[in-house]
Design a protein around this nucleic acid. Structure first.
Lengths: 188, 188
DNA sequence: GATTGTTTGTATCGACTCGATACTATTTAA
DNA sequence: TTAAATAGTATCGAGTCGATACAAACAATC
């Protein structure tokens, strides 16, 4: 039994986040997972706002996700919209209420508090360590990265310095490239 | 809506840990929380191995913890033992099976893999960033630290360089001081 | 075009989590 | 000695989650 401090700290942080997240959601009658879904929908691009993408991102089964989405739709926190080209696909969009709720709850109180106290330099130090850990974790274990377009191998810049995705073969706006994508693959 | 990258990364790590932990436990018919309880019991000291301490550590209600413990006891992964002085208190101890199971499952595969790849220097860099974040998080939000004795204000060294806890007024072995305690308070 | 297989999403069931509430037993304080 | 606090258990209901089965739309092949 080798002790693994990285594991220990991540587990502890995770436990604290769960508690905080449960409390944050409780005000609105939401469970931690439901908040996570809303959060994901607020940062994913238009090719990744489907139930299947949520399923992959959260590592649940599509049945479980389907139920969660039903609850969120009934609470009018998100809207479903059929894809024009592929009628199997539902696009999920946060409603105004959903966005408002999200802004009030995420990041949770604990993390807001901690960032008030931490000096900028410490914050960026921690951020880059976390980023490095996460990236390595995903790569080492062969998991989807769900990164943003600007770091993706499919993302190219055309002559007129516009962004373009070589996978879906569509132009991208600057805002587009800041959102996460289920097809993301790191640059080699 | 201010973006908070520290929150984002911790949330993501937390989601990945949940998935990995669920898979690790599934082999033995255990839920993530149940593994967390076993893990806690393997690193806490003899003043912190009670249901109430588990309750505080995991941030659940005592009712919930009581049920979880019942399951683990039925599976013979832990044993309960009445306190000699205070008959309300149950001490929880991992059984041999429990320890074995824990060693096989924690740290989970993902973290074992990542540590094989990361160079020592990177590991300690990440570890110290995580530690700093966790400590600040706990302090800022007025939460119990559950630290180890050697970093506790109650821990003193007697003339003959033995460790001694000023709170419970008991001597401590060297091994004792490496375990986490529910009464832990950071040195000023 | 019909057939087969794949993908997306839903529906249902059972095991389990978790909080809330109510309860017992023991210890401590007044 | 009585009242309050503390440790723990029991029970209930809402919700998570995986497994399974299913329908609908798309894709590939003949």
């Amino acid at each position: 039994m080798k002790s693994n401090h990285i594991y220990d700290y991540v587990e502890r942080l995770s436990e604290l986040l769960r508690v905080d997240s449960r409390q944050a959601g409780a005000e609105f009658g939401l469970q931690p997972v439901q908040l996570e879904v809303l959060h994901y929908l607020s940062i994913c691009n238009r090719y990744s706002d489907t139930p299947m993408a949520v399923t992959e991102y959260l590592g649940l089964t599509k049945g479980t996700v389907s139920q969660t989405l039903k609850v969120l739709e009934k609470k009018e926190l998100l809207v479903k919209q059929l894809d024009e080209n592929d009628k199997r696909i539902q696009h999920l969009r946060l409603s105004a209420d959903g966005t408002k709720l999200l802004n009030e709850t995420i990041p949770t109180a604990m993390f807001v508090n901690v960032c008030k106290v931490l000096p900028e330099s410490k914050q960026s130090e921690i951020t880059s360590a976390l980023k490095y850990l996460l990236t390595t974790l995903l790569e080492t274990n062969g998991l989807k990265t769900f990164g943003i377009c600007s770091s993706c191998r499919y993302n190219i810049q055309t002559e007129d310095s516009q962004y373009y995705c070589g996978l879906v073969e569509q132009p991208l706006s600057v805002d587009d490239t800041k959102l996460i994508c289920r097809e993301h693959e790191s640059k080699p």
